[in-house]
Design a protein around this nucleic acid. Structure first.
Length: 876
RNA sequence: GGGCACAUAGCUCAGUUGGUUAGAGCGUCCGCCUCACACGCGGAAGGCCGUGGGUUCAAGUCCUACUGUGCCCACCA
């Protein structure tokens, strides 16, 4: 074995081996439980970033775990066409080339995006492969491929026929840059500093009413002024008329409960066509709509003399004109929130537009019932269930149509005089009048519409395919909490509506990947870590390890490069431990690897050293802890446990001891435990563990070379007596070794120099004492001679270590150290004594806990006595 | 305005159902190329576990109030 794991050469070979073995593809083995997942399809906007790495590595780890624990597994990969996002990226690229997309025909532009889609799709799927994700790539889907498109058309028509999808003129959020409607969930909010303008509206018949607004240009579309009905200041105005300045339009003063008396002047201008609250008020009061802002973000003909001005220009001109007429009372600085497009950050305009909507209430009720009655799906972390439920209850209708090119065309066709025709296949002629000149609706669907069908459509739904029958609903959905509403909730609702089943039994919501300061990774901040670079520089296992060890359910994952350095170090450590054990074992035995576990246990009964039992015990505890974490889908927690145990116990202690034990079963047992570590680490870092397994040779003949297909280890059987004895042994042994090392450091004894010591009242066998000698480069003597000495108490204080050395040393430092220790011991003793004697502890706490504390107090007292005694000697 | 989460070492974070002296990685300091690994080994310094109450024999852990931080929802013009 080389001294390092060569990931550059090993990774491609294992990727090929896994592909051959069909990891992530079901075997159809009878009697096996199925564990299925579909991936959150990455957007085809570019390459995969660190968030995707987490999104895919975490479930891969769980899938590999399920595979080893005996499940038949399937994970379906795929990509998302990501309507607005992809179109935006392609538009930007065209702009760099000097091409204006508006100059292109719909088909031309669509073809350019298709080309882009092919390229990025390939790249993304390639990245998934290279991250070691065990998926069934033969089942890979794309949200706009024929299978998924069929599902989209079917779902739309079905919802249309059920009258859940409808077309209506509504106030929607409009992105003037994307030239498209957006859903409420596609808005982001920014605080912006602006002005609150106080406008004086003249009453017909004399007097003024003053309104406050942040958007004075919308006054051109005012249909009324509203006041609170309980506001005494305005009682006399209600029902009277205003002559709207600039437009010279008569508008009424109305009373509405939704107006807050204590904001601004207590009177609000009502612009039903450009403000959500005004829309509602206008609707209830039957006010007319004046759409003064158009889809291009400029003012419309309805704005009279202000037509074709941009919003900014119009605002300035309106204010100037009002000022001239002395109708601008005052202005004050004002900070408020404005909505922007979540893809291009352009300010969104509320405006009235004819759009397709999905009525959510019936779907919502299904989801609420599934969760409240059956607890479906189960959320990790659990508290997300309540958040999800709460959100569902306030759900509004979903605006489905987008006025962009890239996406699923709305499957509705129009005939000149007949009602719209909704069909899953392009109709040749109008079913009502037979007219052949049908025109398809130019709009496309919100990209999340196809996403919401994903767990069904990947399996061929609505067709009753074998796959659909067999794999739907899936076992687990792993995704980021940021798309719980946008995606998870909608999948659940669609699943319930169309299949009466929640599409996944469990949902694991992971956090967002952030930098070490907790900031989002972004190109502008320059804090982006590219997973591909990490793979090149540190290896894919290091990428997986780093991402996994930092992940916690529901919490954000802070990452920096150091984590991957540590990750690579662990891979190297693991590798070298294997290299060493293989070497050691080959000295003992000609066989390629350890014998069977049964045979090993027989040898253990005859020849075991306590450290063998201790290491076995440590492994069993690690296995149990890791499993309990994994049952809660906490891969990070499991990995941390394994790391601590492998490095801190197995390598730092057990292997070091095995090195010094001559002959015996040390290497064989060590190798056997090591093999189990390799297995439980396989789901996390599959490349290096597979390579090591190959290097070590097969345990038994007939086993597959693919470690991922081996079975998850069971705890080692061992006698409880041996377990207890090995624990006691460990305490004594480790504390004397540690104390010797501390003395060597404290007294600056050269590492090459042998230390002479005596140990009074040995709890350790002579054989083990020789291990201590070798481990600490020291020699035990029975008799004190005339040399300088230092004494230390060990462990519980029942025995004592004396180290002799030639050089003179100043006792002051040691005295201070001892005095400090005695002081702390006294405090601890007093605390314990009070606990045992003065409180109700002794009578109320369980007897075993009380016994423990009593024993501890005894130990502390013994230790203090010894230290005080020695302190007196030093002082004297 | 409503909701959720978090607050532990200089930094990033563990700490499973309450029970010995609260841990790791990175960073800092000291000493080592010891024949698996310097991507390593040994050691040290560094924490009244955000604050005040409460429950309990016992609280980092449970409850409550407060303070601070982050996020989500709402969007008062």
């Amino acid at each position: 074995m080389e001294s390092r794991f060569n990931y550059l050469t090993a990774e491609p070979l294992w990727l090929e081996a896994w592909s051959q073995s069909g990891l992530g593809r079901p075997n159809r083995q009878a009697g096996k439980a199925l564990f299925t997942m579909v991936i959150p399809p990455p957007n085809i906007t570019g390459s995969l970033h660190m968030g995707h790495a987490l999104d895919n590595i975490l479930p891969d780890c769980l899938l590999r775990l399920y595979l080893m624990r005996g499940s038949d597994v399937l994970r379906v990969p795929g990509t998302d066409h990501a309507g607005i996002a992809t179109q935006y990226v392609v538009e930007k690229n065209l702009k760099i080339q000097g091409i204006d997309r508006n100059a292109l025909k719909r088909e031309e532009f669509e073809n350019i995006i298709k080309e882009w889609a092919e390229k990025t799709k390939t790249g993304i799927l390639g990245q998934l492969v290279k991250m070691g994700c065990a998926m069934d790539f033969s089942r890979a889907r794309f949200t706009m491929d024929e299978t998924c498109s069929r599902a989209v058309r079917f779902a739309f028509k079905s919802l249309f026929d059920a009258r859940l999808i409808y077309q209506a003129d509504r106030l929607i959020s409009w992105c003037p840059r994307c030239r498209s409607a957006l859903s409420d969930l596609e808005l982001e909010w920014q605080t912006s500093r602006g002005q609150l303008h106080y406008l004086k509206y003249p009453m017909i018949g004399g007097g003024f009413i003053t309104v406050a607004t942040t958007r004075p240009e919308t006054m051109l579309g005012d249909a009324a002024v509203a006041v609170n009905p309980k506001d005494p200041r305005y009682e006399k105005f209600v029902g009277k008329k205003i002559l709207l300045p600039l437009m010279k339009r008569e508008i009424p003063v109305i009373a509405d409960r939704r107006v807050e008396s204590d904001f601004g002047t207590g009177a609000v201008k009502v612009t039903p066509a450009h403000d959500p609250l005004d829309w509602a008020i206008g609707h209830d009061h039957g006010l007319p709509l004046y759409s003064v802002i158009g889809e291009d973000g400029n003012l419309t003909d309805a704005a009279g003399p202000y037509r074709r001005l941009s919003i900014k220009e119009a605002r300035k001109k309106v204010l100037d004109d009002l000022k001239t007429q002395e109708l601008l009372e005052r202005e004050e600085p004002y900070t408020h929130n404005t909505a922007v497009c979540y893809r291009c950050a352009t300010s969104v305009e509320p405006l009235v537009s004819k759009q397709w909507f999905l009525q959510m209430a019936p779907l919502r009720d299904l989801a609420v019932a599934a969760f409240e009655k059956n607890g479906q799906p189960k959320f990790y972390p659990e508290h997300w269930g309540e958040i999800y439920l709460n959100w569902l209850k306030n759900l509004k209708d979903w605006c489905l149509s987008r006025q962009i090119i890239w996406g699923h065309r709305i499957p509705v066709w129009y005939c000149e005089k007949c009602p719209p025709i909704c069909a899953t296949e392009t109709p040749v002629k109008c079913p009502s009048c037979g007219n052949a000149g049908l025109k398809q609706d130019p709009d496309v669907l919100d990209t999340w519409f196809s996403s919401s069908l994903w767990p069904m459509s990947v399996f061929g739904w609505p067709q009753e395919t074998e796959d659909f029958k067999r794999f739907y609903p899936t076992s687990l959905m792993v995704t980021g909490y940021d798309i719980t509403y946008l995606w998870v909730a909608r999948m659940i609702m669609m699943g319930l509506h169309f299949t009466k089943q929640v599409p996944f039994a469990e949902v694991y919501l992971h956090g967002l990947v952030r930098d070490e300061k907790g900031r989002k990774m972004s190109k502008t901040l320059g804090n982006v870590i590219d997973p591909q670079e990490i793979q090149k520089e540190y290896g894919t296992d290091a990428l997986r390890y780093g991402v996994l060890i930092k992940s916690q359910p529901g919490k954000d994952t802070p990452l920096n490069k150091d984590i991957f350095v540590g990750a690579k170090n662990f891979v190297t450590k693991l590798w070298n431990a294997g290299r060493f054990l293989k070497l050691e074992h080959s000295k003992e035995s000609a066989k390629p690897g350890p014998r069977s576990q049964q045979e090993l246990l027989a040898i253990l009964d005859q020849h075991a050293h306590p450290s063998d039992w201790w290491a076995i015990g440590q492994f069993n505890e690690t296995l149990a802890a890791a499993q309990s974490h994994l049952e809660r889908l906490d891969a990070g927690g499991a990995l941390r446990k394994i790391y601590d145990s492998f490095w801190g116990s197995f390598c730092d202690w057990h292997i070091e001891i095995v090195k010094l034990r001559r002959g015996g079963c040390g290497p064989a047992v060590g190798l056997a435990i090591y093999r189990d570590f390799i297995k439980i680490l396989q789901p996390f870092i599959p490349f290096v563990t597979h390579e090591i397994a190959k290097e070590l040779g097969n345990e038994n003949s007939g086993q597959e070379a693919v470690l991922a297909r081996e079975t998850w280890p069971a705890p080692w059987p061992r006698a409880p007596k041996a377990a207890e004895a090995s624990r006691l042994w460990w305490r004594a042994f480790s504390s004397i070794v540690t104390e010797m090392r501390i003395i060597r450091n404290d007294f600056q004894i050269n590492p090459g120099q042998e230390m002479i010591f005596s140990a009074a009242n040995g709890e350790i066998s002579p054989e083990d004492m020789s291990l201590v000698e070798k481990l600490t480069k020291s020699k035990r003597v029975n008799q004190a001679d005339g040399r300088a000495r230092v004494r230390r108490t060990i462990g519980s204080g029942t025995w004592e270590l004396t180290v002799f050395f030639d050089k003179e040393w100043n006792p002051a430092k040691e005295t201070a150290r001892l005095a400090g220790q005695v002081g702390e011991l006294e405090k601890a003793i007093a605390r314990l004594r009070d606990l045992l004697e003065k409180s109700d502890f002794s009578s109320k706490a369980p007897s075993d806990v009380v016994e423990k504390e009593r024993a501890r107090l005894e130990g502390l007292r013994g230790r203090k006595a010894k230290l005080s005694d020695y302190l007196t000697q030093l002082g004297g």
